[in-house]
């Protein structure tokens, strides 16, 4: 992968603009539940935590799928779902540690971030630069992992409240 998505929630202002543009880019209209990124909010701490597919090196969702609908492209590193095969059993939703695989609003298929095929709209739209699309240098990879860990921690806190 040439570029990676770094999501630093400490820069997120919680506005959910990324969700608007994500839905628009994929569907041609805006519906929050069709956004591949979801910003969780916790007002008491002024938190906004964007959660979306991390395109993990060893994605736990892939082995969880009983019908092999999920796969990872070796060259691009993008995890994707074959919608023809997906039965909507939700096992991948449960397997994802990042609350990043969700069901589409029709409730019949799983859906995840596809990195817009390599030019993510959310990164272009995020002015506070909480979501950035950067060259996959070792330092950036370290930063991505660090930011992901921070988000997982913050999500745990959010879900407790």
């Amino acid at each position: 992968m040439d570029n990676i998505l770094i999501v630093d929630y400490e820069k997120c202002n919680g506005c959910q603009y990324c969700m608007l543009v994500c839905s628009m880019a994929h569907e041609g209209y805006v519906q929050m539940s069709r956004s591949r990124v979801k910003v969780y909010k916790l007002e008491s701490e002024a938190l906004g935590i964007p959660m979306l597919c991390e395109h993990c090196d060893e994605p736990p969702c892939i082995p969880s799928c009983p019908v092999d609908a999920l796969g990872k492209d070796i060259k691009s590193g993008i995890v994707s779902i074959d919608l023809q095969t997906c039965t909507g059993c939700k096992l991948c939703v449960e397997a994802c540690p990042y609350s990043a695989v969700r069901m589409n609003p029709d409730g019949n298929k799983a859906f995840i971030c596809d990195l817009c095929g390599g030019d993510p709209e959310c990164a272009k739209a995020c002015m506070p630069k909480a979501i950035t699309w950067v060259e996959a240098k070792p330092s950036a990879i370290w930063m991505k992992n660090h930011c992901t860990d921070k988000r997982v921690e913050a999500m745990e806190r959010l879900l407790e409240v």
């Binding site: 202002n13 919680g14 506005c15 603009y17 002024a46 906004g48 739209a125 995020c126 002015m127 506070p128």
Partner: peptide, 20 residues
Amino acid sequence: LKAKRAQVGCFGCPIGCHLY
């Protein structure tokens, strides 16, 4: 001030003028 700058945004607002 806990956010480094004004950081709380309303719906769809990249400016985020609120101080926390």
